[in-house]
Design a protein around this nucleic acid. Structure first.
Lengths: 166, 166
DNA sequence: TATTGTTATACTCTATAACTATA
DNA sequence: TATAGTTATAGAGTATAACAATA
């Protein structure tokens, strides 16, 4: 890898106490809280799902397939906000697990239509039950009404940042 | 890697139209919006920083060092919500770039105290100027008052999810 | 024994680019 | 030319585990 760090010189002063650290502009910095909240929400859902279910990220995709028979991979990518390459990998894995099947559309043989199997529907139902508990835990923390505002703010933020790209 | 996917059988039906996709519980699913908002916020800040500055994740660490001379690596890890191994790597890189220096504390020679160089202070100031514009763009979208509520909600969520771990 | 920091390693999520096949 | 999907590859960010030095 890289070279070991060089030895440090010794200085007499002491570090600042943790309680009095100056965070500067970081108190206003949304990005940091957003990152940590995302990580904690992901980890909480993953904990509740346990080892018998899919990973959190796959719940979105499987739910879309269960609710929308013959949904295409492009549609899944757009609706789940994921790149098509990630969708391909997720669907391949789910097909290997027997959770979904895919069919070519007769009228346009480029598109792959995805359909959940019975095992896939059962898996989605099990995961959704855990998702409901996960959301209830969030509601206990922030309140159901506040959650609606919260989601609206997230959506507004996403839309504005995307508009700013162009 | 893995084997190529097998050929698909052809089915006559058509995919659902994208506009009428059924998202099921996903409309309530905070995690997905959280992920996308985080990604967009990160990307927006990265765009504004350009190629001459550090990556967004390093801004937090450099800001802590600039504002708190002799801050230790453990303190940086806790304050920036990052694992110590990531802090080590970030600081090594910043030291290579001449943005910070590190010293051993005389009274406890395990601890490494971090101090920003003049170049580091200038870099932090340049990045903070871009961070302010980034935050202003967010305020245009969600409003400064709503941002305060938003951060409070994020903090509450983080605290609740962490409490639920134990 | 516990803590600070380092190193090696690996995992997750995501994206880019080049490709095949279909349109 | 453009679109749907696949593959190989790579990157950013994060974490785990074993370790050395120090307390």
């Amino acid at each position: 890898m890289s070279e070991p760090l060089p030895p440090l010189s010794i200085e007499a002063d002491s570090p600042p106490s943790f309680d009095t650290l100056d965070h500067g502009i970081l108190h206003e910095f949304v990005g940091m809280y957003l990152r940590v909240a995302y990580e904690e929400a992901y980890a909480d859902f993953a904990r509740r799902l346990g080892d018998e279910a899919l990973r959190p990220g796959y719940f979105t995709i499987l739910t879309l397939v269960v609710h929308n028979p013959r949904i295409t991979q492009t549609q899944i990518g757009m609706a789940s906000e994921r790149d098509k390459t990630n969708v391909t990998n997720a669907l391949r894995w789910m097909e290997d697990q027997g959770l979904i099947r895919r069919y070519l559309a007769a009228n346009d043989r480029r598109t792959h239509m995805c359909v959940a199997t019975e095992a896939g529907r059962q898996m989605q139902a099990r995961m959704q039950a855990k998702a409901v508990v996960h959301l209830a835990a969030l509601n206990d923390a922030i309140g159901a009404e506040r959650r609606a505002d919260f989601i609206r703010t997230l959506k507004d933020m996403i839309a504005a940042l995307r508009a700013g790209k162009r």
